[in-house]
């Protein structure tokens, strides 16, 4: 088995696991029950998306995707902080 075979097999496995993780996070997003639950699920989804892009960078041999992962992580952070501030100000569910 050549070295590129190993990493392509591994990236397929990792992508499959991350996809399952994404589905699970979506279940929590749909179920809630409270708004903070959904925010946590959404945060997890975007961080998982960053992970998927990073794995895809290896699978496609394209290091540029790493920048996409960084931007996704940044956006997820900003989104969560904004949600948290909104929740604390509004005090409603």
């Amino acid at each position: 088995m050549s070295s590129s075979d190993i990493s392509s097999t591994a990236s397929v496995i990792a992508l499959a696991m991350l996809s399952v993780a994404l589905v699970l996070a979506f279940i929590r997003l749909a179920r809630g029950p409270s708004l903070p639950d959904r925010v946590v699920a959404l945060d997890l989804i975007s961080i998982l998306a960053a992970g998927i892009t990073a794995v895809y960078a290896i699978a496609a041999e394209q290091p540029v995707f790493l920048d996409v992962a960084l931007v996704l992580a940044l956006i997820s952070f900003l989104g969560t902080v904004a949600f948290a501030r909104y929740l604390e100000r509004q005090g409603s569910r």
């Binding site: 190993i6 696991m17 399952v20 279940i27 929590r28 997890l44």
Partner: peptide, 30 residues
């Protein structure tokens, strides 16, 4: 060698992410 290390890291990372999602679904409160 690098390939093996990076593949292992990738699988480990994906496993942790999967555990995180399982926890988010299974745990009892926020």
């Amino acid at each position: 060698m690098n390939e093996i290390v990076s593949s292992a890291l990738m699988i480990i990372g994906a496993a942790f992410a999967l555990l995180a999602s399982a926890g988010v679904v299974r745990m009892p409160d926020l």
